[in-house]
Design a binder for these strands. Structure first.
Lengths: 184, 184
DNA sequence: CCCAGTTGTATCGAGTCGATACTATAATAG
DNA sequence: CTATTATAGTATCGACTCGATACAACTGGG
């Protein structure tokens, strides 16, 4: 009925997902932790995580509570908006990420020929774009690939975001961002 | 830290997974239903499903109970081994599968160029093989690609399984099997 | 007959997840 | 400058997931 790729992808996803019951964390908690490690400072909020994971706010709120209980993340009031919450990994969270069960999948991908890895990544990007379009979701690409990204080698900060009117450190621009929109 | 393909694959999987909360079924229940539609008669058992999904027996048992409650599958005593249970879709189960939310992913895959689809499938197979090897899991390939598959155009049944010593209908051999091992 | 191994079920506890209802704060319109 | 509306996040409920553990039923070999 469906192309065998759908079934393969689905089963592969399940196996990876079910491997993620290690280190006292659940799969979803691992994903939240991973996201917080990769997201720049504008995107480390419950709302952005919600949109990244494609779940509801309530569920994400609970997941974050679990991670906080375990001492892996910290919450802070966001600067500027008193409704907002800013999330950060603790050093324990950082440390735990070195035992990320996703490493197994990564090893399998790296076992493919270099040429295939590149093609595989490109196809996944295409697929993702298509899926995101269907659900009108955000891409969460790297900050520096965004159409609001501006080079600016003067005045201390190396770069600049024209959407948020904020200076960007090298770190900021290497990480992923909730507001990212691919440059033309 | 990890290749971006790992992250993409993980997020793609999550989005697909979270789309599968339709039709009154949960993602896992959809996968069980899908499996039962694709598995040949030797493989439609709780045990085989357990190994396919990579979960524990207890969890699968509950999932099957939920599907039975909803009238989508039927249980029968297995012939031969009185411990065994044979699972079959009801007509309601068959009907529900025509609304499988996986169709969305399939549509996205089919939107790729034909050439890419082929390559993508091949890479996924390689990845899966690697992952299965790490966890010593079963492949669940099509019966007719198995090393125990024998052509036999005489005596009614078109084919034959040399492992189970059972005749195989055309249907049997097109479906996937828990015992399948790729032919040399 | 006994016993190790297999197939499946029952139960528990932590967590997932959507749905819904809620609080607090911000932004905007009149 | 308030009234409305929108946004960020939390609380609670119920159905389900999932591993862990314990268990019952059955098979098959000594």
């Amino acid at each position: 009925m469906f192309s065998s790729s759908s079934h393969l992808l689905e089963r592969l996803a399940r196996l990876v997902h079910n491997d993620a019951h290690t280190g006292g964390l659940k799969p979803t908690q691992w994903e939240a932790l991973r996201y917080l490690a990769r997201a720049n400072r504008f995107s480390r909020s419950p709302g952005a995580l919600t949109s990244y994971l494609g779940m509801t706010k309530g569920t994400v709120s609970q997941t974050l509570q679990a991670l906080e209980r375990k001492g892996l993340i910290e919450k802070q009031a966001a600067s500027g908006d008193r409704r907002g919450v800013k999330l950060d990994l603790t050093s324990a969270g950082d440390r735990l990420l070195t035992h990320d069960p996703l490493g197994d999948l990564d090893a399998s991908i790296n076992a493919l020929p270099k040429e295939d890895q590149k093609r595989f990544g490109a196809m996944l990007e295409g697929l993702m774009k298509n899926m995101l379009h269907r659900r009108s979701g955000k891409a969460f690409g790297a900050c520096k690939t965004c159409r609001h990204f501006r080079h600016r080698h003067d005045r201390g900060a190396p770069h600049f975001c024209s959407l948020l009117s904020e200076p960007l450190s090298r770190n900021d621009s290497d990480q992923i961002c909730a507001e990212q929109e691919a440059a033309a």
